[in-house]
Design a protein around this nucleic acid. Structure first.
Lengths: 143, 143
DNA sequence: TCCTTATTGAAAAATATTATCAATAAGGAA
DNA sequence: TTCCTTATTGATAATATTTTTCAATAAGGA
């Protein structure tokens, strides 16, 4: 389901500011902070306010249309999210973020931890860091 | 190895401010933000500046004596880190953070993702969220 | 005890986020 | 299409957070 439908369904309006933020996220390959989304909107000569960026991100987050991705250093940015449960793999060089599915690979771990700690595990945050294929090639060239 | 030794070894000084920050983290059961560490130092009538809190956290992080823990909403706080590779399990109710070891449970997943994406995976961020044993009891009482 | 200098803390500057509110425009109704 | 209602916007101000600057201090070896 796309943004417009979701908005209508929730009785919300499909506005210019929201469309711009969504487009910028759709075009991006790396996680974007509110500030950098705002910067890109200026570069595109789209006249939206920084405040609308924050508000739209909050909205998109509620609709699970975007997801927060943490960097090694900086705290987080947002990327478009496919429907369903996904995690992200981030390139340390070009920052590109790609999705992957956790599958059942975590269930063993989760069960073990529940046993060991007595916690009732409800959710998890998993992110991988590494070098994407392109940046691996880049490295070779310099070697 | 404790803080003092690490500092000496690196030619750094064991100062009051650094000791205070370290003590506060040692006493804490939940992840603390720079601001909240500063607040606790005030409550303890320890006269250290907020800036030193930031600087000390940076230092402790370099020494791997602390680790960043992300909340569901708020971005992150710091907890004391045991030596070695660990992850954290955070209670959604009392915010308590406990460590656990990933073991080999992730290696299958990591290999699969490397295959599928072509990324060279170098590191990962894994955190679990849930209810700790104490807060599970609390819930029962209200039922 | 003295000296060197890493470290501190106060204040200012820079950055990021949230609240306020009159003006605007989205989108259904006529 | 045009009108109306009101959700939404964006400018501004208010907060909060983080970093920089720099003279004064204190850690710790000589």
């Amino acid at each position: 389901m796309n943004l417009q439908k979701k908005l209508n369904q929730a009785g919300l309006r499909h506005t210019h500011a929201r469309q711009v933020v969504m487009s910028i996220l759709e075009e991006a390959t790396i996680p974007l902070s509110p500030q950098s989304i705002y910067q890109r909107s200026l570069e595109k000569n789209e006249d939206i306010g920084l405040v609308s960026v924050y508000r739209t991100l909050e909205l998109l987050d509620e609709f699970s249309l975007i997801r927060r991705v943490h960097g090694r250093e900086d705290c987080h940015g947002y990327v478009l999210a496919s429907p369903g449960h996904h995690h992200h793999l981030v390139c340390r060089e070009c920052e590109k973020a790609v999705e992957f599915t956790g599958g059942d690979d975590l269930s063993g771990l989760l069960n073990r931890i529940q046993q060991e700690t007595g916690f009732e595990v409800e959710g998890h945050l998993l992110q991988l860091f590494g070098l994407c294929p392109e940046c691996q090639k880049g490295k070779e060239n310099h070697a």
